[in-house]
Amino acid sequence: MANGWAPFIGAIVVAIFCAAAWFLAPKGENQTTWRSTLVLSAVSMYIMWLITFLAQLHPLITPYRPGLRPEH
């Protein structure tokens, strides 16, 4: 499902979203605010997700939990 290509797919999605935000932002004196807020939000959320994803791409340690109940 999610493999090494995911960051690039995510980047494309975010790029499309940013383009949409840029062109579909409501016209008027608040257009700049709309554009910058939407684009910057999308980018920072993407970066956060990307970092988390990459950190788990090849983890060096595995979860260790003694005393598990059977159904867990």
Partner: peptide, 17 residues
Amino acid sequence: ELGPNSHRIDGYTYPFG
């Protein structure tokens, strides 16, 4: 019994968070 160690599902990375 389950645990305490675990192994990874091959080729799968947790997609979100």
